[in-house]
Design a protein around this nucleic acid. Structure first.
Lengths: 338, 338
DNA sequence: GACGTTTTTGACACCGGTGTCACCGTCCCG
DNA sequence: CGGGACGGTGACACCGGTGTCAAAAACGTC
């Protein structure tokens, strides 16, 4: 049998409460008592039982990380950001791939909170269509932080990248290269981040005095295949765009394939740009010009904020925006004039 | 306050033990009693507290998933396989990115078991150099299953793909295309799976009556950059290979870039082949010829086996091999004869 | 109706920690 | 020297379930 706190107490000749004090670095323990207890702990090889602590404290010391689609590359970075932060605070992380918009999954999420499996949640996008779920969590007093921009009127905490500014910067760069017909592949309709990027694209066009042309815009679901299809459709136009800017890198990789399949040269005939800067962006040829979104930092910040909320502290801010930056690689070039 | 089992008992007019019986579908509860209890549960919105159950049962109902490098694409598939299986059995999964060969990380893994955070572990490769850790776990009575081939003399359970046969099949396919100088990029030296694949490569050469030429072999660490460097080195030889077969897809993607950078056509001048069939294999251009390793199934099988071990059952087998299969895409072609 | 067997139920200890509060011993001060 | 403040400690209830075991109820048999 593994030793318990009672065994340690007996071995050290003190009460269990005193052992507990030593374990938790509480004040009011004399130095020599502390030493006795530590010696006993060492001698017995005692390690505290987390389940007992959780029960007694009424806390799980665990946060749930919700994400939609495990095939999304950036999830790995988000996971690392969350895991590193929780670990640093002595918390655990419960991964939960799910679709927050599905009521079945929403019920399961609420159950995890009810079962005291987790103390709070970090949502990665897309989580913009789960108002009902969020309201339920709020009513249950279960805190959460979302990794996605959010309208201001709700006081729900979030951490986001400067999506709009990032997309504007990319579009300005493309305009500067000389492109005037810039194809755009949007993300899912229900995602605020995607909408913001789209707005950034429009901002840059407007500033440059160019008309926003809906014919140059396609809708995708952020997956590779959607990027390929959207690009294929854009390239099939009578007057196709000279560059295709996608809502994320995975779709941009798909667009690259579509360019190749159309028998065109990349980037000489058509340029392609992405968003996110996931590892894939460097692993395709030519490497993708993209907007770097520091997902690890976003995730770490979201987790930090959540843990502060759990500890009853007031985080310095309930919304954080982390800047993106343009990364120019080889998939973009000035337009080909024939 | 959330209702407890005592509230339910009071509301239903029975003892807490009877409520517990209903919750756990134990026999010896009269139908009408069960109905009364269920009604009370419903009325109060009672959900059992998992922490209490864990303490009482002395089990965490959680397994730890250990993996080395979160940037490896196949980790996502492995995660899904593990998560789906644990969830189906009412278990949770604790992700733990770590380097099992580092003693600091090994200590943390042992601590997780001591703290009763987890009941057992699934190891994803590389975990071939952690004998010390595995022996400690065995001594503590903490079960584990490894996703990697393993020598037979140790009775440690594992789940693996048919790495050797898979690499042989690929090499035979390349030979059949007409290649005779087949470059090979090995995986890390301490991984059994990599060694097996290398053996499969040699098997096929031997069967075809070709000499194994160490000059055509490079060593990589399974990352993109290593594949690029290895391929670059191979292509710089006086008589370079006509195809480069890599230990995994990520290095193969790197090799593709090296071919491009050398100003060569892929696959007309040089072919490239990978192993694993991760999503990346379909997202580069041309799509990679590779060996499909059903990682999801491997992970699910490993988890299933672990849970059976935890429940004191004897799994049907303590080692499982899951077949791989060749996937021919566009990155391979007959050699260019000039 | 008495009795043995099987089903159904409850009292209560227990899992291994934490929180509350009373108590003891010192020290300081008037 | 009495009394208040405070550092240090322990007794014990408590967190919310599960396991044990004995008692009660239901059932069948003669």
């Amino acid at each position: 049998m593994r030793p318990t706190i009672r065994d340690v107490a007996q071995n050290a000749g003190v009460s269990i409460k005193t052992v507990s004090r030593v374990l938790n670095d509480e004040p009011y323990v004399r130095e020599d008592t502390r030493a006795k207890v530590l010696a006993a702990i060492n001698e017995l090889g005692f390690v505290a039982n987390l389940s007992a602590k959780r029960l007694a404290k009424g806390q799980a010391f665990t946060i749930g990380l919700l994400f939609h689609n495990a095939s999304w590359h950036y999830i790995l970075d988000a996971q690392r950001g969350v895991l590193d932060t929780t670990r640093a605070h002595g918390y655990s992380t419960l991964m939960h791939p799910c679709d927050v918009a599905r009521s079945l999954d929403a019920r399961e999420i609420l159950a995890q909170a009810s079962q005291r499996l987790v103390d709070g949640f970090v949502f990665t996008p897309p989580a913009d269509n789960a108002t009902q779920l969020l309201e339920n969590l709020e009513a249950m007093g279960v805190p959460f932080v979302r990794m996605t921009p959010w309208e201001r009127e709700r006081e729900w905490p979030y951490v986001a990248a400067t999506d709009r500014a990032g997309a504007r910067e990319m579009t300005e760069y493309l305009l500067q290269l000389g492109h005037t017909r810039i194809g755009y592949v949007r993300g899912p309709a229900d995602q605020k981040a995607g909408a913001d990027r789209h707005d950034g694209y429009r901002d840059a066009l407007a500033t440059a005095g160019l008309r926003y042309d809906p014919d140059l815009v396609r809708q995708g679901d952020d997956q590779f295949e959607a990027g390929r299809e959207a690009a294929c459709s854009l390239l099939g136009m009578r007057e196709p765009p000279t560059v295709i800017f996608c809502n994320n890198d995975e779709m941009a990789a798909g667009a690259c394939v579509a360019v190749r399949e159309a028998g065109l040269l990349l980037p000489e005939d058509v340029s392609v740009a992405g968003f996110d800067d996931i590892p894939l962006a460097r692993q395709v040829w030519p490497a993708l010009t993209t907007v770097c979104q520091p997902i690890y930092d976003l995730a770490a910040a979201a987790t930090q904020m959540l843990i502060e909320l759990l500890n009853g502290q007031t985080p310095p801010a309930l919304s954080i925006e982390i800047p993106t930056h343009l990364i120019v690689r080889a998939s973009t070039a000035p337009p080909h004039h024939n």
